[in-house]
Nucleic acid binder design. Structure first.
Length: 521
DNA sequence: GCCAACGTTGGC
DNA sequence: GCCAACGTTGGC
C-alpha cells in the first residue's frame, strides 16, 4: 500500500498555535542586555533573538524559546515522529521491502518474536530521522538532502575519487546553519572574547620599564610552548621517525598534521598543563602511554632488525633507547648498554633493567630528568621468554615498563606464566611483597612466601582483574598502606586463616589466637 | 572527548 | 614569501 506523503514542515506549522500566540512577548532584536535578572529580557535558544517582557512565573526555565521557535520545534518533532513510525517513503531505507534479518533488532526478534513491533529493522529505518548532534534539522542546510556538488568539499571529493578522502567531510551547503550561528555568538559574547580583550598589566605597560622578553611573551596570541631548557627543547633535530615527522614535507609527508616532532615537544609544558592530573587522569596517562608505546614498538622492531642485520647473529643484544633519545645518540648509549649488560647480566639474567637499577640508592635521587634512561635491555633469551608470555601479559609488561612504578617496585624476571612485581626496598612496610598477575589478568599477592587470602579486603577494594597499569599502581599504593601481620614471620603465632596483611600489628584473625609461651617463639 | 585536518600566526 | 607549528574546527 503506498504511504501517504509525509507532512511538510510548513504544513505542520500552519495554523500557528493559539496558546503560543497568547504567550508571545514583545519581540525585539535587542543587543545582549546587561546581566540584570529583574528585566526579564531573554534570549531565545532557537533563533538567538532577545525578547523582553517574558514571564516565567514559578517555572524554573533553563532554556527558553520564542513562540515561533516553539512552533517550529513542535512541528519538527511531529515530523520526526512520523518518520520514525511510518517513514518518509522516499529514502533508500524506506524503499527496502523486507527486514534484513541480520541487524540487532532482527536478531532480537528472531529470538523473541514477541519483541515490540515498533522497533524497525535498522536497515529500514528512515534516513530522514535525525540523530542527536547531526544538526537542528530545521534550517535550510539541514533540509538539503543532496550535496551541492560545487562547494570546495564536493569538488575535492570529486578530485579525490581514486584516493578516498580520509574524513567524511560534509558538503558546506548541508552544514547546520543554527549550530554555526550559536557557536559564532558564543565566541562573540562568551568568555573567550573577554579573555582576548583583557590584557595583563604587564602588557598594558607602555612606559618601557617592562623587559622586552616579558612583553613579548604576553603579547603573543600564540602561547610559548617551549621552556627552552628541558631535554626536548634542547633537541634541535627532528627524530624523523614519529608520526609528526612523517607528516612533514621534508620527510616526504603531506603536511596534514603540522605538528612539532614528538620528541621535541616541551616536557615542562606538558607537565605544567597536565601535572595536577597526571596521577588521576587515566585518559591522559592512557594517551601518553599509547603514544609512547606506538613509537617504542616501532623503534623496538627497527632496533631488533638493525641489530640482527649488523651482527648477523641470533644472540644479538637488543638495545632499546628511550624515545626522547634521538637516533643520532644511539651509538653513545649503545656503549653504556653494553657495559651494563656485561657486568650485570650474570646477576640478573634475562631481566629488563632500568638505569635506576644500575645506580646506588643515593644516586637514584641524583639522577635528574636529563639522565638518559635506558628503558629496557634484554638478551634474545629474555626476548624469547617475553614472546612466550601470554599475549595480554606481554602487552601489560610493555606498559609497565613504560610507566614509573611507585618507589622500589620492579618487574621480576620472567619465570612461569605470571607477571610479577616486587617491592625491593627493605625499608618498605611491605618489603618483598610480590604481586602476581596471572594470564587473564587476575592477581594475587604474596608476602614472605605467604599468599594473602582471597578474603582479604584488599582484593575487595580492587577489580578482580588488573586491566590497566593504573589499576596496578593503585593496588600498589593501597598495598603499601598495610604491613605484615605480626604472625607472618612467626608461624606459631599465626592464625590458620591469617590475613597476612594487617593495618595494625596483627590481623583480626591472629588477634583471636593466643600467643604461645616465649619458648615456642 | 578525542583527534585528524587545516587555517592561521609569527619568526626568519 | 617560506616554513614551523599553534590553535581551532568538526566528524566520529
Amino acid at each position: 500500500m503506498p504511504l501517504p506523503p509525509p507532512p511538510t514542515l510548513s504544513q505542520l506549522l500552519s495554523p500557528p498555535s493559539l496558546l503560543l500566540e497568547s504567550l508571545q512577548p514583545e519581540a525585539e532584536s535587542l543587543p545582549p542586555p546587561p546581566l540584570d535578572t529583574d528585566t526579564m529580557v531573554v534570549c531565545c535558544e532557537g533563533c538567538r533573538v532577545w525578547f523582553s517582557g517574558v514571564i516565567f512565573g514559578r517555572q524554573k526555565v533553563t532554556r527558553w524559546y520564542c513562540s515561533n521557535c516553539r512552533a517550529e520545534r513542535r512541528a519538527f518533532a511531529k515530523q520526526q515522529r512520523y518518520y520514525k513510525t511510518v517513514g518518509c517513503g522516499v529514502c533508500a531505507a524506506c524503499q527496502i521491502p523486507e527486514d534484513c534479518g541480520f541487524c540487532t533488532i532482527c536478531m532480537i526478534r528472531a529470538r523473541n518474536p514477541q519483541f515490540g513491533s515498533m522497533w524497525k529493522c535498522l536497515k529500514r529505518r528512515c534516513l530522514r530521522i535525525l540523530k542527536k548532534g547531526q544538526g537542528c534539522g530545521i534550517c535550510q542546510a539541514c533540509r538539503n538532502t543532496e550535496d551541492c556538488g560545487t562547494c570546495w568539499i564536493c569538488v575535492r571529493r570529486r578530485m579525490n575519487t581514486a584516493k578516498k578522502m580520509k574524513r567524511q567531510w560534509k558538503c558546506v551547503k548541508r552544514r547546520c546553519l543554527r549550530k554555526k550561528k550559536i557557536q559564532t555568538e558564543k565566541k562573540i559574547f562568551g568568555l573567550k572574547k573577554l579573555t582576548v580583550k583583557w590584557k595583563r598589566p604587564l602588557e598594558r605597560d607602555t612606559s618601557g620599564t617592562v623587559p622586552l622578553v616579558q612583553r613579548k611573551h604576553f603579547s603573543s596570541r600564540r602561547r610559548n610552548r617551549k621552556c627552552g631548557e628541558c631535554e626536548a627543547c634542547l633537541q634541535k633535530v627532528d627524530c624523523g621517525r614519529c608520526d609528526f615527522c612523517h607528516d612533514k614535507p621534508k620527510f616526504g609527508g603531506r603536511n596534514l598534521k603540522r605538528q612539532k616532532c614528538r620528541w621535541r615537544q616541551c616536557l615542562r609544558y606538558a607537565m605544567e598543563k597536565n601535572f595536577p592530573l597526571v596521577s588521576q587522569s587515566s585518559s591522559y596517562m592512557k594517551r601518553i602511554r599509547e603514544e609512547r608505546e606506538a613509537l617504542k614498538k616501532l623503534e623496538q622492531r627497527e632496533a631488533l632488525v638493525e641489530q640482527r642485520d649488523a651482527d648477523g647473529s641470533s644472540s644479538a643484544l637488543c638495545f632499546l633507547v628511550p624515545p626522547s633519545t634521538p637516533v643520532k645518540q644511539e651509538v653513545a648509549h649503545s656503549n653504556i648498554t653494553l657495559g651494563l649488560e656485561t657486568t650485570l647480566a650474570p646477576k640478573v639474567p634475562h631481566f629488563p633493567l632500568k638505569m635506576e637499577e644500575c645506580l646506588a640508592e643515593g644516586e637514584v635521587a641524583e639522577a635528574d630528568e636529563s639522565t638518559p634512561v635506558i628503558m629496557e635491555i634484554f638478551s634474545l633469551g629474555s626476548y624469547q621468554q617475553v614472546s612466550q608470555l601470554d599475549g595480554v601479559l606481554r602487552e601489560f609488561l610493555t606498559e609497565l615498563n613504560e610507566i614509573p612504578l611507585p618507589a622500589h617496585w620492579e618487574v621480576l624476571p620472567l619465570e612461569g606464566p605470571d607477571l610479577r612485581l616486587i617491592q625491593r626496598s627493605a625499608l618498605s612496610t611491605v618489603a618483598d611483597a610480590v604481586i602476581h598477575i596471572e594470564p587473564g589478568l587476575h592477581f594475587h599477592i604474596l608476602l614472605h612466601g605467604l599468599i594473602v587470602p582471597a578474603t582479604h579486603e584488599l582484593y575487595a577494594n580492587h577489580p578482580s582483574r588488573l586491566t590497566t597499569v593504573d589499576e596496578v599502581v593503585e593496588l600498589i599504593c593501597d598495598l603499601e598502606a598495610y604491613r605484615p601481620c605480626a604472625g607472618v614471620p612467626k608461624a606459631a603465632c599465626r592464625a590458620a586463616n591469617c590475613a597476612v596483611l594487617a593495618y595494625g600489628d596483627r590481623c583480626s584473625q591472629c588477634c583471636l589466637t593466643p600467643w604461645p609461651s616465649g619458648d615456642d617463639l
